[in-house]
Design a protein around this nucleic acid. Structure first.
Length: 944
DNA sequence: GCTCTCACG
DNA sequence: GACGTACGTGAGAGCA
């Protein structure tokens, strides 16, 4: 059948696709994936994944025909018109360049047409094919984020932006250029393009160009009538540069008559030839994709090629055990006492064992132990099934233990001496989890190593540290997905329902991987100079956090429940009022519906649509609307009511309701889980529930903390560091005035205000102090004029003036910022005062990404050093408060919360304060004192 | 599953 | 000349 009506041609802009793959690879930790000969392949792999899902898509708009179009070379007919065309293109990133030819190979291997024509750009070929396809009556989707292609959008032609995963139609084009697609060329000709080096008309940007074209209809009319333009600058620019503008139009106008030696019919989607695609994928060492494609083509995957020797610039040469293939034949179930004892003997012989537990839940406080896996030699591992259930339930919905398992208590009794033996090193991946599981069975694992924490000490900022990522990155092996055993969603089963032979493969593999990762990381810690970080800031935190999590905090259900009811009533009242004003019932919780009411129905000006096409209705925007009493009184009232409603709704759903579900049925307390590697800076994060974001800033919200209580006869004691990040900034950036202010115990924001605005301290006003405070925080966050302006709601120029004055007054700050960025650019990471490394892989990026990376790089040493300080305090705390009837319950970044018998509260507070204030010693002596403030009470609200 | 919004330091 | 921005998190609700 020839190409025609009903056919759908996908034209993939090769460069756009590669860039998309490259950026996604960076975000997904695959940027640092290399073939064993050292060739970077992360972007190629994602490129292949995307191609494969394109041609196997079963969606309604799946392509019947597809082509990938590449630029042939940088010299095109446009250079004949204007020699400087595209002379400003930035250099390709070094690790992307070698991947370009590989993506052409990939396209051919997938049996997809790969088109390039000498002297023409990919964009012209795309224009030509799109024109031919629409003439023949078919539909076209152009997959690209290049704005130069937007002129092609029209009947039968859509674009899809792979960077943002969104469709681009006439509306989106209008949003971007302010004109319909057929006038885009005119706007571009006027505004020019610095990246492509299209000159355009000086002083005229897209906004102005769109206005002019809207007014005059098209470019030729505009140029002919340029003399009528009122604004002198615009008029002169157009008259003086008319030729240059016409040349610009030639540059941006795509040619729809490029010579091609393919026909549309040649582009039909075809199944890849098995030999060719397998050879390619195998050569690239894409093991998972090779398997997936082989499965789909119903052929056997080829044996992996022997890995050639080569060097990987980012990760050291794998050691021998890493290269051992993963083979399930090395994994055995342990179901007899003899087999168990043979393993225990082997562990004692080696002195090192990787341990992993399988349980019924990710929540350690509710998880039941199902089995244990062990490994002492790479490639060999055991799984001890303990409480797997047989497949069928009886009449009462309960099930029998599956046969052939050793009794749980016997196995634990046999393993306890090993797990607690000071001469045997236990290795785990995320050991806090297993530590808690064993602790609930009376076993305290010691000593241990944790591969997740090793990875964090080595590679924070480069990749996350879950087992799947680590295995893929460092061992080149994709572990069996847990989903393949448990399923997903509602029909998911728990691990005790997994058939034992399947469990053996999965669980033993985990222990095997953990052992291999340990062997891989261990020698790297020293080379990267992070042994101290790992041994003093990461590993010792495990038992401390485990004990805190197991202790939990008492939360009073009745208090929460009463609040919930009160909130529900208040919300109902507000809702009625809101809908009354709106004049129609709508879902107040839907930002989309609210936006339509405010900006369409009520005609509030300034509605801005985000990338999804919905109006933004965040709190700052609603607050602005509340000030429109004069022009839009109804909307102003509505916005104020919605703000109230939002606050209550948040408190109810996230706190008073959800928190009740987290009260443990047996302990009656709430047990959070801290993630040690959750934040790149070294901060902890808290989940299930998050107890680090309990409200405090508003009066209403703070009342939630009344539900956090001490048991009878006990008190909660809260200690928090005062201004720790600013103190650290004063030290690191070495600002004598700020240091002295902290030594003198002055109000630091008032002092800043006084220095900046030349206002004596005794004449300080709250408003001036507020502005200085915002600047102080801004500095910690990597200040920008834009950000400060938005925060303070002042003109951008004014905000920039503040910043300039701040830098002038405290020159050390600018010095710190500049040297930190330089450091990051040269080394790829920044460090805290205690040696923690935070990698900054995007720091040399082009465009807005670099801005993000720079600000993050400025912030990381400050936030990270503060995180290190409180970690040191927490690690010392159990010893310091030993013997007191007290325990540490929670950490909230700069605060520690304790529970203590009433009469011991003063002693506890004094000791804990001392530990916290001296936590940096002896490693670091700050030039400013660290000050800790204490509070106590029956509830967290009182104690804070 | 993604986006928006909002709670904390 | 415009881009799109304060740093670091986690969770619930709406919506496709």
């Amino acid at each position: 059948m020839g190409f025609g009506k009903g056919c759908h041609l996908h034209l993939i802009d090769g460069s756009a696709y590669i860039f998309r793959a490259y950026h996604q690879a960076s975000g997904m930790e695959m940027k640092y994936r290399y073939r064993s000969d050292g060739t970077p392949t992360g972007a190629v792999q994602l490129f292949c994944n995307m191609l494969w899902s394109q041609i196997t898509s079963t969606k309604r708009d799946a392509p019947t025909h597809v082509a990938v179009i590449f630029d042939h070379s940088s010299e095109t007919f446009r250079n004949a018109i204007y020699p400087l065309y595209k002379a400003n293109r930035p250099e390709l990133p070094e690790d992307l360049r070698p991947q370009f030819p590989l993506t052409r190979d990939a396209t051919r291997a997938f049996n997809i047409a790969c088109i390039e024509t000498e002297g023409y750009e990919a964009d012209d070929i795309i224009a030509t094919l799109a024109a031919r396809a629409t003439e023949a009556g078919g539909d076209v989707t152009i997959i690209s984020s290049d704005k130069d292609l937007m002129q092609l959008v029209g009947p039968g032609v859509m674009m899809f932006d792979p960077m943002k995963s969104r469709a681009i139609g006439p509306d989106e084009v209008f949003e971007k250029f302010g004109v319909a697609p057929n006038r885009v060329v005119d706007v571009q000709a006027l505004s020019g393009d610095s990246v492509d080096n299209v000159p355009g008309a000086p002083g005229i940007g897209i906004k102005t160009a769109a206005l002019l074209i809207q007014e005059y209809g098209d470019l030729d009319t505009l140029l002919a009538r340029a003399g009528e333009i009122k604004q002198p600058k615009r008029r002169e620019s157009l008259i003086d540069n008319a030729d240059q503008i016409r040349i610009s139009r030639q540059l941006v106008q795509l040619k729809a008559d490029t010579p091609l030696d393919v026909t549309l019919d040649d582009l039909e989607v075809r199944t890849p030839e098995p030999d060719r695609i397998m050879e390619f994928l195998n050569r690239m060492e894409f093991r998972t994709l090779t398997r997936r494609v082989a499965d789909s083509l119903k052929i056997a995957p080829p044996a992996p090629l022997p890995e050639s020797a080569g060097t990987n610039p980012n990760h050291p040469e794998p050691t021998a055990p890493d290269r051992l293939p993963f083979d399930h034949a090395g994994y055995e179930p342990v179901t007899t006492p003899d087999a168990l004892h043979a393993w225990i003997t082997a562990i004692r012989d080696h002195g090192t064992v990787a341990v992993d537990t399988e349980t019924t839940s990710l929540d350690e406080m509710r998880a039941e132990l199902v089995g244990i896996s062990l490994s002492v030699t790479p490639g060999k591992a055991a799984y001890i099934p303990l409480t797997h259930r047989s497949g069928t339930d009886d009449l009462f919905g309960t099930s029998q233990l599956a046969p052939g398992q050793l009794p749980l208590d016997d196995v634990l009794a046999a393993l306890k001496p090993v797990l607690e033996d000071p001469a045997i090193l236990k290795i785990g991946q995320n050991m806090k989890y297993d530590w808690k599981i064993f602790a609930r069975h009376g076993i305290r694992i010691t000593p241990f190593d944790d591969t997740m924490l090793m990875s964090s000490a080595l590679h924070a900022g480069l990749n996350s540290h879950g087992m799947d990522t680590l295995s893929e990155t460092h061992l080149g092996h994709t572990p069996i997905p847990i989903k393949s055993l448990l399923g997903t969603g509602k029909s998911a089963i728990t691990f005790d329902r997994v058939a034992i032979p399947d469990a053996v493969k999965y669980a033993a593999e985990d222990a095997d991987i953990t052992l291999r990762l340990w062997q891989h990381f261990k020698p790297q810690l020293h080379r990267a100079a992070v042994t101290t970080v790992y041994e003093t800031l990461e590993r010792p935190l495990v038992p401390v956090l485990a004990e805190m999590e197991m202790a939990g905090v008492q939360v009073d259900r009745d208090t929460l429940s009463r609040m919930s009811n009160a909130f529900a009533q208040k919300m109902a009242g507000l809702e009625a009022e809101i809908q009354e004003i709106a004049g129609e019932p709508f879902n107040v919780g839907s930002p989309k519906q609210l936006g339509e009411i405010l900006f369409d129905r009520m005609q509030v000006p300034g509605g801005a649509k985000g990338k999804t096409g919905a109006y933004a209705t965040g709190a700052d925007i609603l607050e602005d609307i509340t000030t429109l009493e004069d022009t839009h009184p109804q909307a102003a009232r509505l916005a104020a009511l919605v703000l109230d409603w939002r606050q209550i709704a948040k408190l109810k759903s996230t706190y008073t309701d959800a928190l009740q579900d987290h009260i443990h049925p047996e302990t009656g307390r709430v047990h959070t889980s801290y993630s040690i590697t959750g934040a790149v800076t070294g901060r902890l994060s808290s989940t299930d529930p998050n107890l680090q974001n309990i409200p405090v800033r508003t009066e209403e919200g703070r009342r939630i903390r009344e539900a956090f209580v001490a048991p009878k006869g006990r008190l909660l004691v809260s200690l928090d560091y005062s201004q720790i990040e600013l103190r650290i900034l004063a030290h690191i950036a070495d600002i004598p005035e700020l240091q002295q202010a902290f030594r003198d115990g002055l109000d630091i924001h008032a002092l800043t205000a006084s220095e900046m605005f030349n206002v004596p301290l005794d004449q300080m006003t709250p408003d001036i102090r507020r502005q200085a405070k915002a600047i102080n925080f801004g500095v910690i966050y990597g200040i920008s004029g834009f950000g400060l302006a938005r925060n303070l709601r002042i003109p951008r120029a004014e905000a920039q003036g503040f910043i300039d004055r701040y830098f002038q007054r405290f020159p050390g700050i600018k010095g710190y910022m500049d040297s930190t960025i330089k450091d990051a650019q040269a080394r790829g990471f920044v460090t805290t005062l205690f040696g923690r490394k935070i990698h900054t892989p995007e720091i040399n990026a082009k465009g807005p990404t670099a801005g993000f990376a720079k600000r993050a790089a400025i912030n990381a040493p400050i936030q990270g050093t503060a995180a290190d300080v409180i970690r040191r305090a927490m690690i010392r705390m159990p010893t310091a408060i030993e013997g007191l009837p007290a325990r540490m319950l929670l950490q909230v970044h700069d605060e520690l919360l304790f529970e203590v018998d009433e009469d011991a509260a003063p002693t506890l507070a004094a000791r804990a304060k001392e530990v916290m204030e001296s936590a940096a010693h002896p490693a670091v002596h700050f030039k400013v004192p660290l000050i800790v403030e204490a509070g106590q009470g029956r509830t967290w609200a009182e104690a804070h």
